[in-house]
Computed example of a mutant assay.
Amino acid sequence: MISFMSNDNLADIWRRIILGDGKSWVVFAHGTCVVLPDPAPGVDLAAQAVEILREYGPVHVGSPSADFGTVTLDPGPGWAVYGHHNDVLTYVGPDEVSDDSDLAVGLYGRHKRNRDGHELTVVHVEDKRPR
């Protein structure tokens, strides 16, 4: 059971999830977000996030990249799935999985991160650096 999330919906979801007004972040097409807590002035945030996701997005079985954990969002709905980079998270909505177990949610989130790590399609940049 997979639903389509618009780019605006993804940005709104991540605005709700990310705590701290000073964190910049970048969202990719399948719901993966790379948080950039302290980017340097003048750095292209999208390019920096692409480099991080290029390295930490793809899944390689038997390596740390295949590991994951889930966090149930409060307030919900949905989950954030994390992996081997602290600043890379993937959103999984309740309408995307029919089984809400940690294993099913985590596997689906890892699959979405893998797709984002290969496709590297940026859909939103939230620049919170001081002006």
Rank of each mutant, 00 (worst) to 15 (best):
G109L: 03
S24H: 05
P37V: 00
G106R: 01
G57F: 12
D21P: 11
T121E: 10
L120K: 02
D99Q: 06
M5E: 12
V92Q: 03
E55A: 11
T32V: 05
D12H: 10
A66W: 08
R113K: 08
V105F: 05
G76I: 12
V34T: 01
P41K: 08
Y91L: 03
H84N: 07
P75I: 03
M5F: 13
S63I: 00
P41G: 03
W14R: 00
D21H: 15
P75V: 01
G20K: 06
V71N: 04
D8W: 07
A104D: 02
A66I: 03
D67F: 15
G78F: 14
D8S: 10
L36W: 15
Y56A: 02
D116K: 10
D95S: 06
E119Q: 15
L120H: 01
D8H: 06
D12K: 08
H60I: 13
H84S: 11
H111A: 14
D21N: 14
L107M: 12
G93D: 09
H84V: 04
V88S: 09
V92F: 09
Y91A: 03
E126P: 00
P39H: 05
D100N: 09
W79C: 03
H60W: 11
E126M: 12
E96P: 03
G76E: 09
D127E: 10
V61A: 11
R54Q: 10
M5N: 10
D127C: 08
I13Y: 11
H60K: 09
V97C: 04
P64E: 07
Y56L: 05
P58I: 04
I2E: 13
A104Y: 05
F68A: 01
I2C: 12
A49D: 00
A104K: 01
N86W: 13
L36I: 04
A40T: 03
K128G: 00
D74E: 15
A104P: 00
R131N: 11
P39E: 00
H84L: 07
G93W: 07
D8N: 08
A46I: 04
T121L: 12
G69S: 15
A29W: 15
G69F: 12
N9E: 14
L45V: 05
G93A: 11
G62S: 02
M1I: 07
T90N: 02
E126S: 09
S6M: 05
N7V: 05
P64N: 05
D38S: 10
P58E: 04
N114G: 11
D44I: 08
R15M: 13
N86D: 14
V27A: 08
R110V: 07
R16W: 15
D12G: 08
M5P: 06
L73A: 00
D99K: 07
